[in-house]
Amino acid sequence: DLSALRVEEVQNVINAMQKILECPICLELIKEPVSTKCDHIFCKFCMLKLLNQKKGPSQCPLCKNDITKRSLQESTRFSQLVEELLKIICAFQLDTGLEYANSYNFAKKENNSPEHLKDEVSIIQSMGYRNRAKRLLQSEPENPSLQETSLSVQLSNLGTVRTLRTKQRIQPQRTSVYIELGSDSSEDTVNKATYCSVGDQELLQITPQGTRDEISLDSAKKAACEFSETDVTNTEHHQPSNNDLNTTEKRAAERHPEKYQGSSVSNLHVEPCGTNTHASSLQHENSSLLLTKDRMNVEKAEF
């Protein structure tokens, strides 16, 4: 173990290094160091905050020279020094078990990766560091076993998940096959086929009936047209017969005018059967003409 005197000496050296690497504005270890034209180094955030307070150039807090945003430059070497100082402080805390008085939040800088452990060898070769390295080497064999167990647990979990997924996939297939086998029997399929065939026959029977009705309507229309044509021909046949009657009536009127007047009046009210309204109107006109002729003949006879 380190003596108290040596611990104090190391602590004083760390404090001196820390004062050199402090920012003059925030009085902390410089984060993202930036250098000016006057070779003074500050935190990048502190300098941008200072420049944004005034429009135009501002003055350096140490030498009062003008500073602009374009004049600022990043210093990589200074950032490396800060990183190495942080590593020294971490090693000091691990070796002594004491917390550094002016320690900052170094938890963000710590890294437990194997590459980081290899890099620590180049920091300080001390008894405390050696003991700590031995402890780490002793704890390393235990870690692979834990990793193997965790991997086995994960693989077993994956296997159970896969088996569950396969079961879920197989179950719908089985149910679907069961439904297909038990849903419709052979008799049901035959009945469905016969039902479809009967429906098709009914459709075939319905369509000819409609065509037959249309044919019957067409035949009825044709018969009505033929009947009207026969009526017209009958009226045409009746007209010459009426003319013959008129000639006979004229002759009778010349011989017996008194008797014919009474008979002509009675004939006005008689309509021949089986004739249309057109034929009756023609008869009325003929009878009126005959009456006028008879009157003329009677007057001539009187004179």
Rank of each mutant, 00 (worst) to 15 (best):
V153N: 10
K134F: 01
E22M: 12
I179F: 08
R295N: 05
R6W: 14
S185F: 04
K109E: 06
L282T: 10
D218N: 08
K259C: 09
S281I: 01
D294K: 06
E249I: 11
S126L: 08
N246I: 09
P61V: 14
L268F: 02
T247W: 13
I89Y: 10
T76F: 03
I20F: 07
K221T: 01
M296S: 11
P141V: 09
A4V: 05
L158I: 07
L29W: 01
L51W: 13
K54P: 04
S75G: 13
C273Y: 03
S58W: 14
K49S: 04
L85A: 01
I20S: 08
G210P: 03
I89W: 06
C63D: 04
P61F: 14
A133D: 04
G210E: 09
V10T: 12
L217C: 10
L29S: 07
F303S: 13
E99A: 12
K167F: 00
Q53N: 06
P208T: 01
A224D: 05
E226F: 00
T275R: 08
Q80M: 04
N276G: 03
V34G: 13
Q205F: 00
K293Y: 04
R251L: 10
L282F: 00
P141L: 06
T233Q: 08
Q154L: 04
Q154S: 04
T207Y: 00
E142Y: 05
L289C: 15
I88A: 10
L146R: 12
E285Q: 14
Q154E: 07
V153R: 10
R130E: 07
E202C: 00
N111K: 10
K259R: 02
R169Q: 11
N243K: 14
N246V: 04
N234T: 07
A223R: 02
L151T: 13
E299K: 10
T149Q: 04
Q283A: 03
K293I: 00
R295A: 08
Q73H: 13
E271C: 06
V298M: 15
L29D: 11
K55L: 03
K44R: 06
D294W: 01
N267A: 04
A301L: 01
R132S: 03
C26D: 13
C225T: 06
L217R: 09
H278Q: 03
Q138S: 06
I215A: 05
G128Y: 02
F92V: 09
H256F: 03
E140D: 08
E254N: 06
H278T: 04
A220Q: 05
S71Y: 10
D119E: 11
N143L: 06
C273I: 00
Y260N: 09
P24S: 12
K221Q: 01
K54W: 03
E84N: 08
Q171G: 02
C225M: 02
A101S: 14
I41P: 03
E28N: 10
C60M: 15
E99Q: 06
R135Q: 04
T277S: 14
E148K: 12
N52Y: 02
T160I: 08
R162P: 12
E83A: 08
E254C: 13
K87N: 04
L72R: 13
E258G: 13
P114T: 06
R6S: 07
N246K: 13
L50K: 02
Q168C: 12
L86V: 03
L268Y: 03
G159T: 11
S280Y: 14
G97D: 10
S139T: 08
R169N: 09
N243Y: 00
S264P: 14
I30C: 03
S122N: 10
L158S: 12
K109W: 04
K192L: 04
E74G: 12
L204T: 08
I67F: 06
K109R: 12
N131Y: 11
L81I: 10
L5D: 09
L81H: 07
Q154I: 12
Q125G: 08
R70A: 12
S197R: 04
F78S: 04
I170K: 09
E249G: 01
L29I: 03
L117Y: 06
R169S: 14
Q80S: 05
T68C: 04
K64W: 00
V153P: 13
N131C: 10
Y260C: 07
A133M: 07
L158R: 14
F42T: 08
L204Y: 10
Q283P: 14
L81T: 13
K250R: 02
Q73Y: 04
K109G: 04
N131W: 11
E140F: 05
E229G: 01
S216H: 05
L48S: 09
T230S: 10
S281F: 05
N276A: 15
A279N: 14
V232L: 02
H269V: 10
A133V: 05
I25W: 01
E84H: 08
I215Y: 07
C225Q: 06
N191P: 14
E120Y: 04
E271H: 13
S156L: 08
L27Y: 03
S266Q: 13
V10S: 11
C23G: 15
K108R: 09
R130T: 05
D294S: 10
K19F: 01
R174M: 00
L94G: 09
T149Y: 15
D218I: 01
I124A: 09
L158M: 06
R77K: 13
Q205C: 00
N286G: 10
L136I: 10
L94K: 13
I215F: 00
E120V: 14
N243A: 09
L146I: 15
T96K: 14
L98T: 10
Q205I: 00
K55Y: 10
N12L: 14
L51N: 04
A223Q: 08
P33W: 13
Y129L: 08
K108L: 08
C273S: 07
D66E: 14
